[in-house]
Design a protein around this nucleic acid. Structure first.
Lengths: 368, 368
DNA sequence: CATTGCGTTGACAACGTTGTCCAGGGCCTA
DNA sequence: TAGGCCCTGGACAACGTTGTCAACGCAATG
């Protein structure tokens, strides 16, 4: 067995020390670096020289390993403070093989759904002494791959990916090489791995059924690009609910495309106009909902609305939503990941988290 | 206390290498790989052996350096694909001295103000070929320091910090060692560095003056902890506006503390109750605004409100706000940082970005 | 007194990559 | 054909750290 594992890379072994004003940087490092070198930081070697001890002893002190006399430790610590030494984790990682960091690739950190998700992942990572690196794919498969591979090159211990693309075979060598991977929100493409999903189908079906239960039969659906798994699942839920009620979906009731406000607006206005307009809308995600709310607010005739994903202040606006708990999704995914990292070796699992219908008024309006 | 990870961060003991000399062929190397041993990734050495070329030639191919015959390149590329090789950036960083990554320490990624900010920083970083690592300090100075130093240990090239604490002398050795640092949203404590701030004082003053202009004289202020610079600046702006109008601020009109919804609610209700209630509220940040809107919505009598920071859907709710452009703040900070990294050597600058008053109704209500 | 044992310490190699430098071969020119 | 040059490729050291192992001093033991 390897000896007792030293501390994580995230939390320095030593508690933060108050700044000491004793420091003058006067180590003789005349020709050690070429002068072009950026950031000429002291190394353990420098600390050792200044403290008059061996290199390894400095390493011991820095990592709080046993077997150092209090007196020696004090001398080393003084040298560390004087020089402003800080361990170089790149070198450490190279030697130890683990980075104590995980990567999270999501769509857009600015999206209010992903912020809390990321934060939840961060907290779990922190509890495991790991740092989180997240990147935004901007829903671009190529950028997703670029990001993921950059993270792999940095040898993150694990990856959480919210897929933008639908083919993740490029990850196979990485997964084989030992990078634990969990896919979130949408299933992985052509790769066998853990997944944590929300019940898009069920949630959507419930939401549409809710509208039907309140008397609607002409219901419009506005969703994201069909390339995105959750978008098609939600559409499937819509169709299922309509079919359950024996309603035939008419042309023009369904719009799939970007979530770009302009297009959503156009789609919504088209559905709400004409001789036989829809009386209710189902919005496929939070951004669609926001635009839909704006469009509806401008209209004379009330239009019922249920949105997928909760929105801040939706309670005050009385918007009925299908809520998925972003933080719970992130937490679950992160916990799965760390279970893997701790050695869990079972077959890839697929977890589906339930959604909740939150009635707040807009979904309970009767047909106009 | 940062949790110490008791789990083994160590990679499992490597199988002993049967040889270390250079001339030998690689039979057992390839065998080793096909064993699918986890955590044992192929290196350039392995690729070189398989392609029958030298180590440095592989490095050249991987980095698209010139001086490699197309035929050789092809052979190397095949070996790379066959083995699933990926360059180890830790080793690369160790050698090159630059990590091509920057760190961003903010308060809470789940906060709708920081999501867009982080995203803007990410985009600038990406344009400069750098990766962004962000961490949440949860407004805890100790955690901020812990995070910052962990990022320094990873040798990020630069740091963007939204300070939680008010003493950043611990960063001095790092800054001296060449880690470019920009402070955002709040000034650095006892350290001379670049700063990008919003005009909290001016914005707040304008917002309160706006309420006064609409006839209010009894105006309450609810803000964040006075430890936080923006909180005191906004309070200062409030006092300035009141003084400008010749109004004496009464006890009980000002509440500083956490942004915890419960306490904000209590504070707001206290101000709005009693024999001589305030007729308007100024909310010191987005979270306070959200709670204030809820409290006001429950009341019979209309209460005017201006909030600092914009909120999604605030237009539909008719909330008047002082808006600061989070993305612009992030972008500006990141651009400053990269200018430093590209060699800019001028004295630390202090940029102050303007705020905008957006009237939407709640701030234009007359006193009840 | 010699020996054992333990606790402390440091020399050294290795982690995987890149910069430097030199060797060898092919080709062009005189 | 000889000499020189360019182009390709590889050997080697270094980056800063940690694991291994052996040496040392000292005390307790036989």
């Amino acid at each position: 067995m390897p000896p007792e594992s030293p501390t994580s890379l995230l939390s320095p072994a030593r508690s933060p020390r108050p700044f000491t004003t004793t420091g003058q940087r006067t180590v003789d490092r005349t020709t050690r670096h070429s002068e072009t070198r950026y950031g000429n930081r002291p190394t353990m070697k420098d600390v050792a020289a200044r403290a008059g001890v061996g290199l390894k002893t400095v390493s011991r002190v820095v990592n709080s390993e046993p077997g150092v006399t209090p007196d020696t430790e004090r001398r080393v610590q003084e040298a560390i403070d004087a020089l402003g030494f800080r361990r170089n984790d790149s070198a450490r990682v190279l030697r130890k093989g683990r980075t104590a960091s995980i990567g999270l690739v999501l769509e857009d950190l600015a999206d209010p759904f992903y912020g809390p998700l990321s934060r939840a992942v961060e907290e779990v990572a922190r509890a495991h002494g790991a740092l989180l690196i997240n990147g935004s794919s901007a829903e671009d498969p190529e950028r997703e791959q670029e990001l993921v591979l950059a993270l792999c090159a940095r040898r993150v211990d694990g990856l959480i990916v919210i897929p933008a693309g639908d083919d993740h075979r490029y990850l196979e060598p990485e997964i084989k090489a030992g990078i634990a991977t969990v896919f979130v929100d949408r299933p992985a493409g052509r790769v066998d791995a853990d997944m944590v999903l929300s019940d898009s189908f069920g949630g959507s079906r419930e939401g549409v059924a809710h509208l039907i239960a309140h008397g609607h039969r002409r219901i419009g659906f506005i969703g994201d690009q069909p390339r995105i798994h959750t978008a098609t699942e939600r559409l499937r839920g819509y169709h299922a609910a309509m079919t359950d009620a024996g309603i035939t979906v008419e042309d023009g009731w369904v719009s799939l495309g970007t979530t770009d406000p302009g297009r959503v607006r156009a789609a919504a206005e088209a559905m709400l106009g004409g001789p036989e307009p829809v009386t209710a809308l189902f919005a496929g995600n939070n951004r669609v909902t926001v635009t839909a709310v704006r469009v509806i607010a401008e209209r004379e005739r009330p239009v019922a609305l249920v949105g997928f994903d909760d929105i801040e202040l939706a309670d005050l606006l009385g918007i009925t939503v299908i809520s998925q708990d972003a933080a719970a999704v992130g937490r679950t995914a992160a916990e799965h990941l760390f279970r893997r990292l701790d050695g869990a070796d079972h077959a890839p699992a697929r977890v589906e988290l339930p959604t909740t219908l939150i009635p707040r008024g807009s979904g309970e309006l009767p047909p106009a």
